[in-house]
């Protein structure tokens, strides 16, 4: 419930938020992303914003001098908007958690902990008669519920901030995603909502999510559309960063699949370590980049891939036909690495 709200300004913010979400729908999508947990959470956030805008419009557009029934509609819409904001913050936290750890199992294992602020909110609401006496307040239930929901939202904002800091430490030097850039509009929305009374949390989220969506779409210029590995353009980007000393890669393995490269890309995904950096070149060659300087380990990894290919070729008519010559190379330094990569 926002005191002193100007509904025209709120409507304006909601309209802009809606347009940003509509614009995001027009961005070309990768069909494979539909199966990604992070994308599903992202879409859920967008759904929350759309529903929140709808209920906010119901609340704001209800005419003055409304009937008793109308008052109930406004109150219910208000409560739903608050719950949707809380849901949005929870989903935002889950999204950052997934971005940081890329693990569904991790989220499953910690879901009870993650829902703890929500549990506490529900308990506080259920025990309202008791807490009212305990805190000595004489406010209405809805007013107290609003304050409890603000506490819950702050808890999720804090948890998300911790994840953002961790994410920045781990991934800060990587391209495409700048976590503080999306956090800024969300924070601005929360601050304006709290101090000025204009509800622009949804607009703040929509701006942040729009940035993420466009950033993700921009990053696809480095992704091979068939295999979803990196493409040659990414190799050029890596070469620049290696030459400039801002990136360290110690070694590579060069595979060449003369047959079914899609099947080979699936085998690479299975056999290579998690989150491997693989570049797919146009001519059936795949480059695995790594930080290890150990030739023993590179050779062992290439043998693992070869065994995977031999198993596949033994049972499929469309064979992968992996070249016998798998090149494992260790780089002396960034300049040497850039030179070798340029020659690929």
């Amino acid at each position: 419930m926002i005191l002193g709200e100007d509904y025209q300004i709120t409507l304006g913010f909601d309209l802009v938020a809606f347009m940003i979400l509509f614009g995001m729908c027009l961005i070309p999508k990768d069909k494979r992303e539909g199966r990604d947990t992070g994308v599903r959470i992202f879409v859920s956030m967008a759904v929350c914003i759309v529903l929140g805008i709808i209920f906010e419009l119901i609340r704001v557009l209800m005419p003055e001098g409304v009937s008793k029934f109308g008052i109930y509609v406004v109150v219910i819409a208000d409560v739903i908007v608050e719950l949707l904001i809380a849901a949005l913050l929870f989903l935002f936290f889950l999204y950052m958690d997934y971005k940081l750890y890329a693990s569904r199992d991790h989220q499953r294992r910690h879901i009870v902990l993650y829902l703890m602020p929500a549990f506490i909110f529900v308990i506080l609401c259920l025990l309202w008669p008791v807490t009212r006496k305990l805190f000595g307040t004489d406010t209405h239930f809805l007013a107290d519920m609003y304050y409890y929901s603000v506490l819950m939202e702050l808890a999720y904002l804090f948890m998300t901030a911790v994840h953002l800091i961790k994410y920045y430490i781990v991934f800060g030097k990587k391209p495409f995603f700048h976590p503080f850039s999306i956090y800024a509009p969300v924070l601005c929305g929360a601050v304006i909502t709290y101090y000025l009374g204009y509800n622009c949390v949804f607009l703040g989220f929509a701006i942040g999510m729009g940035f993420m969506a466009f950033s993700s779409a921009d990053s696809r210029r480095f992704i091979d559309k068939d295999t979803a590995f990196f493409n040659r353009a990414y190799l050029g980007y890596v070469r620049e960063m290696l030459s400039g000393g801002t990136l360290k890669r110690s070694s590579m393995i060069l595979f060449e699949a003369k047959g079914d490269r899609m099947a080979f890309s699936d085998i690479l995904r299975t056999e290579l370590p998690a989150h491997s950096e693989v570049v797919c070149l146009e001519d059936g060659r795949f480059v695995f980049l790594s930080d290890t300087g150990s030739m023993t380990e590179l050779k062992a990894l290439s043998e693992l891939v070869r065994d995977g290919v031999d198993d596949y070729d033994g049972s499929h008519s469309d064979k992968i036909l992996l070249s016998d010559d798998i090149q494992c190379r260790v780089f002396k330094d960034g300049t040497a690495a850039a030179g070798i990569i340029q020659g690929l």
Partner: peptide, 12 residues
Amino acid sequence: RIFRRGIMNCIF
């Protein structure tokens, strides 16, 4: 095979 994959994942 799963053991070897796991070892390589941990090593890397």
